[in-house]
């Protein structure tokens, strides 16, 4: 069977777990840009022998069914991965005047809230992966001096549509949930919509920029309950 596949000149190890599932894993701690996008490309192929695809920044999981045979895996070698350059640029509105965990963030980053927000608004983020809960997105792009470690003990309740920081990632809690990330703001609209296919309007490698909004815009957008797509016009 296929032992490894190349992705943008990076070797991925192929491990078959008893024909139940396959893991495509990065052999070293190399930069993983594109792995999640590769996962999405496999998902979009709708292979008959694959039931589920899940991708993180370091591995891709393929749940197999009875139609799997090792030869079929050869097909994934020929998948063309869309270049990250073609990814969409999406603006996400954030209301920052929430209590959240600003005290922790000011203490750790050593800059005040206003300075932190100013820096944040200049940054470009990239959708790294999905995980944890439906619609929870992990975004890369936070420089080291703005990264905030996860809480030692998770908070019992984080309201849905919270923007939060967990180590190197920015994340959006798309549902009410317990969570260990540091909350910095609130989205007026949800990125999760079960009436759409797929339920999340963001894709791996999409470029994200945050817009600061005031309370009036926050309320307006919330009441209109428009989608991220509509917000981006």
């Amino acid at each position: 069977m296929l032992k490894s596949v190349q992705l943008n000149n990076i070797d991925l190890e192929v491990r078959n777990f008893n024909g139940d599932f396959i893991l495509l894993s990065l052999l070293s701690n190399k930069n993983a840009v594109g792995l999640c996008l590769f996962g999405k490309a496999i998902l979009d192929k709708n292979f008959d022998f694959i039931e589920e695809v899940i991708a993180t920044e370091t591995e891709i999981y393929l749940k197999l069914n009875k139609l799997f045979n090792p030869n079929k895996l050869e097909q994934i070698k020929d998948i063309e991965i869309p270049s990250a350059v073609q990814s969409a640029e999406i603006k996400i509105p954030i209301y920052f005047e929430v209590e959240g965990d600003w005290k922790t963030i000011e203490n750790i980053s050593g800059i005040n809230k206003q300075q932190y927000i100013e820096k944040l608004l200049k940054l470009d983020f990239t959708i790294a992966m999905f995980g944890f809960l439906p619609g929870f997105v992990y975004m890369n792009g936070l420089p080291k001096n703005m990264q905030i470690p996860r809480k030692a003990t998770a908070a019992k309740y984080i309201p849905k549509n919270s923007l939060a920081i967990g180590n190197q990632y920015m994340g959006i809690y798309s549902l009410n949930s317990p969570g260990g990330w540091n909350v910095i703001g609130q989205l007026p609209i949800s990125i999760l919509d079960f009436d759409s296919l797929p339920a999340i309007c963001l894709q791996p490698s999409d470029k994200i920029k945050f817009d600061q909004i005031d309370y009036a815009s926050y309320s307006l957008l919330k009441n209109k309950s428009i989608s991220i797509k509509e917000y981006n016009g």
Binding site: K40, E51, E52, F130, G131, P198, A199
Partner: peptide
């Protein structure tokens, strides 16, 4: 609910 685990939607 099959096929949506990619978006962290459990089965």
């Amino acid at each position: 609910r099959k096929g949506w685990a990619f978006y962290a939607i459990p089965q």
